[in-house]
Amino acid sequence: MTQPKVVKTEQEWRQQLTPAEYHVLRESGTERAFTGEYTDTKTAGVYRCRACGIELFRSDTKFESHCGWPSFYAPSDAQNVVLIEDRTLGMRRVEVRCANCDSHLGHVFHGEGYATPTDDRYCINSISLTLEPTQ
């Protein structure tokens, strides 16, 4: 990581983020399927953490998974994300968090058979991202 780790109080996060952003990023919520602003976006660019701005994904790894959320087959730098076993909701999943600010991004699934180089699907909430288009 090139940025210093972001540490804020919950009050500081509440002041910075909208209630919907706070729910997803800080409370591990999920936006409704097919409602996020980047679900169908084809714009070339860099996807950054909405909470701290660190680069997470690039548009050249985004693919159509038809799951209702933006899907990527790999982060732009594996050191910028943290994978955590998630056993909530009676399921066994792998949560994806920002390594820089510990914000919830979504989940990663492996072995679903997508025609991608990694066979991984990083299923990421649009609201946890900002897109910086390439010039």
Rank of each mutant, 00 (worst) to 15 (best):
V81F: 01
R92S: 15
I84M: 05
P70D: 12
I54S: 07
R58N: 14
D60A: 12
A78C: 00
V81Q: 01
F57E: 09
G53I: 07
G53H: 02
F57R: 06
G90L: 08
R87H: 13
V82G: 05
S76G: 09
R93C: 06
T61W: 04
L83K: 12
T61G: 05
E55Y: 00
R58V: 15
N80Q: 14
L83H: 11
P70S: 14
A74S: 12
D60H: 13
R92G: 11
E95M: 07
G53Q: 06
P70H: 08
S76P: 00
S65D: 06
K62A: 14
G90Y: 08
S65W: 00
M91I: 11
E85H: 13
P75K: 03
R92L: 14
D86W: 02
D77T: 06
Q79I: 00
S59E: 08
S59F: 04
G53Y: 02
W69C: 11
E85R: 14
E85P: 10
R58W: 04
F57Y: 14
T61C: 04
F72L: 10
H66A: 15
K62S: 12
G90K: 04
E95H: 07
V94K: 08
T61P: 00
F72V: 09
R93V: 10
M91Y: 08
G68N: 07
R92Q: 13
I84N: 07
D86N: 07
G68E: 04
S65Y: 03
F63P: 00
Q79C: 01
D86S: 10
R58Q: 15
T88W: 02
E85C: 03
S71P: 01
K62C: 12
F63H: 04
I84Y: 01
S76L: 05
V82I: 15
Y73D: 12
R58H: 14
S59I: 07
D86I: 07
V82P: 03
Y73L: 03
V81N: 00
F63V: 03
P75G: 11
F72H: 04
H66I: 03
Q79H: 11
I54N: 06
S71Q: 04
I84T: 15
G90V: 10
I54W: 00
E55V: 11
E95Q: 13
L89C: 07
S65I: 01
W69M: 08
I54A: 10
D60K: 09
V82H: 05
